[in-house]
Amino acid sequence: MKLGKLIWYLQRYSAIYFLLFLGYLVLIVLTDRFSFQFLTGSLTFKLLSSFFIILACMHAFAGLWTIGTDYLTKRTLGFVAPVLSTYANLLRKIFEFFFIFLGLFLVIYYLLIIWS
């Protein structure tokens, strides 16, 4: 699958999943099952929420990558200050790596909490 198509589908299908997961959470609350014991004990919740956190990070990164390639470029940073334009590619890489590491940290941290 082409990258453009892959990103497009990733963002749309993940957004649908978020809505469904939100519905699932509302259902848990409405049926009075919302407790830490339930959240850490239910295999269904563990699986669905793990999938949610992974998709959320991928969805967010796709959006942030778009923002980075729009606003952290030689052209756009050059409007702010010419000196920033020189470091545009470096700044964008730092921006992208920061959110990659933040996403990975959140995913791993969440999986450790929910599965250990």
Partner: peptide, 9 residues
């Protein structure tokens, strides 16, 4: 036109 920029932007 299938890359992430040409149309999808």
């Amino acid at each position: 036109l299938s890359d992430p920029f040409s149309v999808y932007r």
